[in-house]
């Protein structure tokens, strides 16, 4: 292929994926009348604000709970990512390095639970969490998803890659099980750990139905769910505000993604996918 053609192809590909976000970003700088005026026919102003202003962001910052809710999303992201990574690391270590009856079966059982998507199983999940007394609580949101089959799979496979000679050498030097994990295994699976962490961190931004059902107090709600309330069914929707709030909501995920994305796109640990 010729160079310019290759360049154009990549440009089109990239544009296809970021255009909606850029459009939302542009819409957050224009008010409704600006938006409607140019919606009927195609011009530059269909996409860009004719009278740009940052007032929507000011309004978003005065939303009484948006900052709390955004904090909830970020905190949940950290807790989920860290919890999943730690529990997967421990389980992956045991499944890879210990030998006990039913090890393969347990691993397969864990993998099998990958095939229980939350959308399909929402009602009973609500009951389980209700019976545990965790409805309307932070832990009620987090706990059901701290076990992740993908996480266990990813980390177990990464540990399998680590030569067994390494941990046996450490073991012969008198290192305990935890010591082996720390000195022989951990330094060699950093890429997988970061991929696992990142994957589960951004996973929280996917949530909509689960917090909608399991969290019914607005100061414990997640930002992306609360934004739905900004679409006013009775009066008129302030689109600039909706998009300003949306942009603010995805900003933390985007920052973390920007910092860590090279581990996802180029590390050995990406086969786990979502």
């Amino acid at each position: 292929m010729k160079r310019p053609l290759r360049f154009m192809l990549r440009l089109v590909l990239a544009a296809l994926f970021v255009a909606p976000i850029l459009l939302a970003l542009a819409a957050s700088f224009r008010d409704n009348s600006d938006m409607y005026r140019y919606a009927g026919s195609l011009s530059l102003w269909t996409f860009l604000p004719a009278e740009p202003g940052i007032d929507a962001y000011r309004r978003a910052f005065t939303l009484p709970l948006l900052q709390t809710q955004l904090f909830n999303t970020v905190l949940l992201g950290f807790v989920m990512a860290t919890g999943t990574t730690v529990s997967s690391l421990l389980a992956g270590y045991a499944l890879s390095r210990f030998r006990f009856r039913g090890r393969q079966a347990l691993f397969l059982l864990m993998l099998f639970t990958l095939f229980i998507p939350v959308d399909v199983i929402l009602p009973p999940l609500f009951f389980v969490v209700r019976d545990l007394g965790l409805i309307d609580s932070f832990w009620g949101l987090a706990l059901p998803f701290i076990f992740s089959p993908i996480g266990v799979y990813l980390i177990r496979q990464a540990i399998e890659e680590v030569p067994r000679e390494l941990d046996h050498a450490a073991s012969l030097d008198g290192a305990g099980l935890w010591e082996v994990l720390r000195t022989a295994i951990l330094p060699n699976i950093r890429g997988a750990l970061i991929a696992c962490w990142l994957m589960h961190f951004v996973f929280v931004w996917e949530w909509y139905l689960w917090p909608l059902t399991a969290m019914r107090s607005d100061d414990g709600q997640l930002a992306q769910v609360a934004i739905a309330s900004l679409i006013d069914p009775l009066r008129s929707t302030d689109y600039a505000l909706v998009f300003a709030a949306a942009i603010l909501t995805i900003l933390p995920a985007f920052v973390v993604f920007a910092i860590l994305q090279r581990f996802l796109t180029s590390s050995q640990a990406t086969t786990g996918g979502k």
Binding site: R10, L13, A14, F17, V18, P20, I21, L23, A24, A27, V202, W205, E206, W207, Y208, Q224, V225, I227, A228, I231, Y239, V242, F243, A246, T249, I250, A253, F254, F257, A258, Q261, R262, L264, T265, S266, K274
Partner: peptide, 24 residues
């Protein structure tokens, strides 16, 4: 690397927010 990052970026915006954007 930049284009790859853009292709996977929708994962990071979350489905609820991207759905709002598509609705618009």
């Amino acid at each position: 690397a930049v284009v790859r990052a853009m292709v996977i970026s929708p994962m990071f915006f979350g489905l609820p927010v991207t759905t709002f954007i598509f609705a618009y």
